[in-house]
Amino acid sequence: MDIMKDMALPCIYSLIASIAFGVQFNIRFRHMLAAGIGAMLTQLIFTGFEISGMGQMICYFFSAAAVSVYAELMARRVHVPVNMYLVVGIIPLVPGGYMYNTMITLVSGDVESFSHQFAASVGIAGSIAMGIFAVSAIVRLLRIITRQSI
């Protein structure tokens, strides 16, 4: 495979796009770069999983989990809400292509490929949500345990 085209370029694109998204969410400049790097890491991890030949949903699940871990760690470190890094970090995972294909097959009336594309986009969105869900649940549990022990 072409490393430049398939790995480096998407990472750079997601870095730039997520910094621009940071402007839309009114994040200050000094947090923006860290958030953008989070998005870049997400894309890198996602490509890594994809190359290793895992199932698509698993790829999305683990990438979303990875970005949640990054967001939780960064938020603890600089004392900001976790949202700030998490919202920007999952941007490269959004299944824009599948959502578009769902819509376009609906317009053309091709029911068979519509149901296929619809299932894929709902499944991907679900996997991303579950990835965030899993990590946040574990972090919450850890916080409750540590607070009680003190």
Binding site: A17, F21, Q24, F25, V82, N83, L86, V87, I90, I91, V94, G96, M99, Y100, A125, I128, A129, I132, F133, S136, A137, R140
Partner: peptide, 18 residues
């Protein structure tokens, strides 16, 4: 269309559920 994607609503929703 990526400008219209509801990214923050989805993350907030998951974190509220937990």
């Amino acid at each position: 269309s990526m400008n219209l994607v509801p990214g923050i609503t989805l993350t907030n929703c998951m974190r509220d559920f937990i």
